[in-house]
Amino acid sequence: MPIDQHVLPETDLIIPACHKEEEDEYEVVYHKPATLVDVNMHYCPGCAHSLVHKLIMEVVEELDIQEKTVGVAPVGCSVFAYDYMDIDMQEAAHGRACAVATGIKRLMPGKYVFTYQGDGDLAAIGIGETLHAINRGENILIVFMNNAVYGMTSGQMAPTTLPGMHTTTSPDGRDVSFYGAPIKVAELMANLPGSFYVTRQAVNSANAVRKTRKALVNAFKYQQLHKGTCLVEIIGNCPSNWKMTPVEAAKFIDEEMVKTFPLGDIKVPNAEDLKIF
């Protein structure tokens, strides 16, 4: 193992070691996107939100669309997303992000509009607004953070909680005969003709992060086509509420979450639609 790298056990997350020497001697190979506000985030260690915030801002920077982008934050852990993303944003009522985004996008069809929503916000209280926005084929991107649990209110059962999974409101594990099975949002929404690109990704490994980033780049770009809604579901790590270490949480995704929520593209545009790129 090279001595300037720490490799976390059982994952391929690679974190560069701090350089003690003067920075000038080194080529900058990575920096935080300038579109990410330089403040401490309130997220827990090992949480997926901070990583996905950064990815979205990287994509906004890469596509050079800061001036044309309007985001919509949900109610949930990421309610403060507008504190971190250096773009114009609106904070929506719980579950209503897709309706708010509809209002924004319909009035400004030339802008890039995205919502950022958790599973409680999108799949429970807001599934109506989400489904109808997608069914209308709103030209927005929905970033759906699925960590199978209510984060901000500290660990209650979500519509996406796995069968048998323990939460504060399903202390004996989610009883499917009582609460039904977890909602597979990506598969459900892919069935609607209004959805254009639907994928499920994760951010629990470097490889997964790269794929998620690629998905986000595509999803932002596709807004130019005015062909329908893009939905990027991201399986998020929630070590605090899963009562795990960050490493265990990353592992839990690969070992358990993907059984219910298999990763990969669910609906991709046909080549004809993508000709202009």
Partner: peptide
């Protein structure tokens, strides 16, 4: 101009929020 029949009054008022928030 934009006119839209929303899926509910809940959606309507939040669409208003979005459009009004964008200055319209």
């Amino acid at each position: 101009r934009i006119v839209m029949q929303a899926e509910s009054e809940v959606a309507s008022i939040n669409m208003v929020y979005g459009a009004a928030g964008a200055g319209f």
